[in-house]
Amino acid sequence: MQAAKRGFSGLDLNHDGVISRKEWSFMQARMVAPVPQNGRVQLMCATDQEFKLMDSNHDGKITFAEFTADNFGRDRQPIRGCY
């Protein structure tokens, strides 16, 4: 659980208890920067889909409960439609 808290805190840049779309986009930009140009669109699409799936109540924010309930994607089907 400590690892989940650290991961969540690292994404919750303003420490308001939720990960906003803006904060997620900032993380997305950091991830995309080292990726070769031809792979960036796929990565951005995948991380966008990840946000939508984790935001279970579709309010545009990810709470810690949503973050941990998602089980970090282990129980999900692969993301489709990005490639």
Rank of each mutant, 00 (worst) to 15 (best):
Q2W: 04
A3N: 12
A4F: 10
K5Y: 06
F8D: 00
S9M: 09
G10F: 09
L11C: 11
L11D: 11
D12I: 05
D12M: 08
D12R: 03
D12L: 09
D12E: 10
L13P: 02
N14M: 13
H15G: 06
D16R: 10
G17D: 10
G17I: 09
V18A: 09
V18S: 03
S20N: 03
R21Q: 07
R21W: 06
K22M: 07
E23Q: 12
W24R: 02
F26W: 03
M27C: 10
M27E: 02
Q28M: 14
A29H: 10
A29F: 07
M31A: 15
V32W: 04
V32L: 14
V32M: 13
A33V: 12
P34C: 14
P34G: 12
P34R: 12
P34A: 13
V35M: 15
V35G: 08
Q37H: 13
N38F: 13
N38M: 12
G39S: 09
R40I: 04
R40Q: 15
R40D: 09
Q42G: 04
Q42P: 00
L43I: 10
A46Y: 05
D48V: 04
Q49P: 00
Q49Y: 01
F51H: 09
K52M: 00
M54E: 02
D55I: 06
S56L: 03
H58S: 13
H58P: 00
K61H: 06
K61I: 00
K61M: 04
K61R: 13
K61F: 01
T63L: 01
F64A: 00
F64P: 01
F67G: 02
T68Y: 00
T68E: 04
T68P: 00
D70E: 04
D70P: 00
N71I: 02
F72W: 12
F72S: 13
F72I: 01
R74A: 13
R74H: 05
R74F: 02
R74T: 10
I79L: 15
G81Q: 07
Y83D: 12
